[in-house]
């Protein structure tokens, strides 16, 4: 278990992380999300004490590690693997040797055993054929997989990922996320991942924290943080990231639906495959106009996020809302001012 307690970090008296407390459980994939410059990287580096917090405590398995120094600090850091946005491979070493140099050889361990371990790991990340290539000869996705192999070679308990997909194209991003999920499951590895892409967290995170301006604004499952949370800065962040949140203002402007009550329906799991809109029409004679929306996978749950207008009499609308609430559909009312362009 990793824990941060009232962590603040300052650079030259500028607060970058402000009084953040959180716990990361063993075996979970934990996302840290926010804009560039929000303090995500700084926060991540406090976990393995690459940065010492200005104030606050860092815990590792309930032990206060904040003030570790010297060889204890080095030993502590070996519990972590770390990968970076720009891979940070050594250009003068082959793929194999980039992993080999990271090996912490135990006393009496034979080079043959080490070799076997590296080969096996390179196979896990799908690079067994590229062992003798140099980083310059690899694609971004392959480089990041070398970095993962290097990070995992000493069997760490935690993998810290600093924007690991930001320099990759969508295809490589997808492959990499699948690989991370795989090693999370197979090696029971705790993963902490920084990203500014909501899609990345939706794909692999069990829990997410949203950081803005050094502050922790939300913590929970991806759907809790990105759909149910009404904090305006999160909503704004989503509006840059999510297609339906981007579309809504355009639709409203173009077709003049100003003044009408817009409802956001958050339909989850089995309800996604129910004919809800037809039911509403049959039961209450209410017609539904969908302005924007989409069905998405958030970690292990499936969510249909819809922005609609109900046409019909007042009592019909009221009954409709009651009906939906009973089915555990989450409903949010959007007035004129709430959904911003």
């Amino acid at each position: 278990m990793l824990g941060l307690e009232n962590i603040s970090i300052e650079f030259d008296k500028n607060p970058v992380v402000k009084n953040i407390s959180l716990k990361i459980e063993d075996g979970e994939v934990f996302g840290i999300v926010g804009y560039s410059g929000a303090g995500k990287s700084t926060l991540l580096r406090s976990l393995n004490l690459l940065l010492k917090p200005t104030s606050g405590k860092v815990f590792y398995n309930h032990e206060n590690v904040t003030n570790l120094k010297g060889s204890n600090l080095k030993k502590f850091r070996k519990q972590f693997g770390m990968i970076f946005q720009h891979f940070n491979l050594m250009e003068t070493r082959t793929v194999y040797n980039n992993v080999r140099i990271a090996v912490d050889k135990k006393k009496g361990e034979k080079e043959k055993v080490v070799k076997q371990r590296i080969r096996q790991l390179l196979e896990t990340v799908g690079l067994e054929k590229l062992a003798n290539k140099y980083p310059q000869e690899l694609s971004g996705g392959q480089k990041q997989r070398v970095a993962i192999a290097r990070a995992l070679i000493n069997k760490p308990k935690v993998l810290l990922c600093d924007e690991p997909t930001s320099a990759l194209d969508p295809l490589n991003t997808n492959t990499l996320l699948k690989l991370l999920k795989k090693i999370n499951r197979e090696l029971k590895l705790t993963i902490v991942i920084i990203t500014h892409e909501i899609d990345v967290t939706k794909a692999i995170c069990d829990r997410v924290s949203f950081i803005d301006n050094g502050e922790l604004l939300a913590l929970g499952s991806p759907s809790e943080v990105f759909i149910n949370n009404t904090t305006s800065s999160i909503q704004k962040f989503i509006s840059f990231n999510e297609v339906h949140a981007r579309t809504l203002p355009y639709v409203k402007n173009k077709f003049g639906v100003h003044g009408k009550q817009i409802y956001q329906l958050i339909i989850e799991d089995e309800n996604v495959v129910q004919p809800l809109i037809s039911n509403i029409q049959e039961l209450f004679s209410i017609k539904t106009i969908v302005l924007a929306g989409g069905i998405d996978v958030y970690g292990s749950s499936i969510v249909n996020n819809m922005f609609v207008i109900f046409q019909g009499d007042r009592t019909g609308v009221k009954k409709t809302l009651d009906y939906l609430l009973k089915l555990k559909v989450k409903i949010k009312q959007h007035g004129e001012d709430e959904v911003q362009e």
Binding site: N48, L50, K74, K75, F76, R77, K78, F80, G81, M82, F84, H86, N88, M90, I101, A102, D104, N154, L160
Partner: peptide, 20 residues
């Protein structure tokens, strides 16, 4: 950035100078 990478691996100054 390689310095940070090395430190994350638990390397000390001597090893960073020599191996990086």
């Amino acid at each position: 950035n390689l310095v940070e990478t090395a430190q994350a691996m638990g390397w000390g100054v001597f090893k960073i100078v020599w191996s990086v």
